[in-house]
Computed example of a mutant assay.
Amino acid sequence: MILFGSVFNVLTIVVGTLIGRFLHGIPERMKETIMYGIGLAVVAIGLQMTFESTQIVIVIISIVIGAIIGEWVDLDQKINRLGQWIEGKLPARKEGPGIAQGFVTGTLIFCVGSMAIIGAIDSGLRNDHNVLVMKGILDGFTSIILSSTLGIGVAFSAVPVLLYQGSITFLSTFISRFVPDDLLQFFISEMTATGGLMIAAIGLNLIGLTKMRVANFIPGIGVVAILVTIVYAF
């Protein structure tokens, strides 16, 4: 089954989220401290990913142009509306973070990174799911921690994970045939670095230091692909 790795990844996120929901009853003071700890860890992960860049200018330009595009189409608001629509379809719940916050946070953390791309390509080309299985286990533990404070919205991030990794898996033959390996590696490093900054921004939001509309940075990933191709060509 060519999508085994992606499906496994999705299941670990959903199961991890459900397990994390059993931890939501912890005292508010402890939950606040846990949230700060998660925020700090997310910032550290994001910064570590950013250091993978070999052309930091590409990262900066991608973030800036991505932010302009995101603000222009108001992507953050659209995602929040989607979260509110999903929230309206669910049973009434206690006060806490909205569906959108968990959805956006989970989506960026689980989709951005080299393991998602490399693992999906391995699944498509060699039917080797080891990388995605390992990623799924890591994502499962991460979703337990995230959902204990951010709620059930984390589970819905499994949908874009399946679409993203599944698409790469199906397109892997095309990618390997027409995209040189060094160009692919160049893109992965710069995409990971750009996504790392977004993840660091999420961490700052979780701590409460900022209120950045992180989803509006997402178009920057597409900008990375364009800039990397231009730089590689010249």
Rank of each mutant, 00 (worst) to 15 (best):
N130S: 15
D76W: 01
G195C: 02
G151F: 03
N80Q: 11
Q84H: 13
V112Q: 00
F103M: 14
F178H: 11
K135D: 12
P160F: 13
T142N: 09
R177S: 09
V112F: 03
I145P: 05
H129L: 09
D182C: 02
G102R: 12
D128R: 01
K78H: 15
G83M: 10
K135N: 11
Q165A: 07
I152C: 02
W85K: 10
N127R: 08
P91M: 10
F141G: 13
G88Y: 07
A200I: 02
V104H: 08
T149H: 04
E95V: 11
F187Q: 12
I188S: 13
E95Q: 15
G151L: 02
G113C: 05
L171A: 15
L138E: 04
E190T: 06
K94G: 15
I86R: 04
F178L: 10
D181A: 14
L197W: 03
S143A: 15
N130E: 11
E87M: 05
G88S: 12
D74W: 02
S189H: 02
V179L: 15
G119M: 00
L171D: 08
P180C: 10
G119D: 12
K89S: 14
V154C: 08
L171W: 09
D181Y: 06
G151R: 01
V159P: 04
S114F: 05
I199C: 03
G203E: 05
G119I: 13
L184F: 09
L150V: 09
M134N: 09
G119H: 05
I121P: 03
T142H: 03
R177D: 02
I117G: 01
L108M: 14
